[in-house]
């Protein structure tokens, strides 16, 4: 099981401390999907495997995806040996689908399985209500204070598609509200050059301000980008880990992780190798 997680990334993929925020950034061609899957795997698989953990203490995951459907995540998680449907049935995992129903006519809404919610409106109140409900669902009625990890894939989509109705501040407020309800949160956001440096249109300024704000709040950032020197056959991209301002030097958490830059390679079968430069 442990081999599924690249050893060099293990300290980062472990369950983050309470109230922390982890930001994963991607660019076109260097997606964070494999990293998100590793986070899911390390959270769900380890908590269900270790026997000492009290069932009420096990970590649960609420996963919101705005660009990809459940089938994609299920399929690729299965390659890692992680059965998301089984976890959904056990109520330790809930999926909020921000793709299938957001902008389609009503009759096109798909049937939902257990632990699955389909967002039907891009309004922030609707989105945040749906996510809160999913959080409550996995937490259960017993009120057990299990750790809930919130993973949001491409939250910036809401900003892009909403036009002028949603600003960066509104989205940050929504995220802050959600973070109050969960143990910690992992967010993926696009950090392509045109989205953060052009600053010409409202789309670009909103995106940049949202990204910078989240980056400053984050405990650590894992930024994925393509290799600067062009494409190589055995390197997919670079992952840069930056530690946020808020993590104090003497913190327990700070001692476990450090800032570094690693190369990664995603093989055709979905396996990932992470290594240092020159290795």
């Amino acid at each position: 099981m442990a081999s599924k997680i690249p050893p060099l990334l293990e300290p980062y993929l472990a369950l983050p401390p309470e109230a922390s925020l982890i930001l994963l950034t991607n660019v076109l061609g260097a997606s964070t999907n494999w990293l998100v899957l590793r986070f899911l795997h390390s959270t769900l698989a380890t908590s269900s495997n270790s026997l000492e953990v009290h069932p009420e203490d096990e970590t649960k995951v609420v996963f919101v995806s705005f660009l990809r459907d459940f089938a994609f995540w299920k399929d690729n998680a299965r390659r890692l040996g992680l059965d998301l449907e089984k976890h959904a049935a056990k109520k330790s995992f809930a999926f909020v689908d921000g793709l299938s129903g957001l902008f389609l006519p009503k009759q096109q809404r798909p049937a939902v399985g257990p632990g699955e919610t389909v967002l039907s409106s891009p309004s922030l109140t609707n989105v945040s209500e749906a996510i809160l409900k999913a959080i409550q669902d996995v937490r259960g009625s017993s009120g057990a204070k299990g750790n809930v990890l919130l993973v949001v894939d491409q939250l910036d989509l809401l900003l892009a598609v909403a036009g002028n109705q949603v600003g960066a501040v509104n989205l940050e407020e929504m995220l802050a509200g959600l973070r109050e309800e969960v143990h910690s949160a992992i967010i993926t956001v696009s950090a392509d050059h045109p989205l953060v440096s052009a600053l010409q249109t409202p789309l670009e300024t909103n995106h940049a301000s949202f990204l910078v704000n989240i980056a400053h709040q984050a405990d650590f950032i894992m930024g994925l980008r393509l290799l600067d020197s062009g494409t190589a056959t055995d390197v997919s991209g670079v992952v840069r880990v930056t530690i946020g301002d808020q993590v104090a030097e003497d913190d327990d958490f700070r001692r476990k992780i450090d800032e570094r830059e690693l190369l990664y390679f995603v093989a055709g079968d979905g396996g990932v190798r992470v290594f240092e430069r020159g290795q």
Binding site: A30, N33, N76, L227, T231, A232, S236, Y264, V272
Partner: peptide
């Protein structure tokens, strides 16, 4: 080639299949 279906969704990058070399 900036992005290829399925291949880049998984993680992408170089790779012998991408043809982007």
């Amino acid at each position: 080639i900036h992005r290829l279906p399925i291949f880049h969704e998984k993680g992408g990058g170089g790779g012998e299949n991408s043809g982007s070399g």
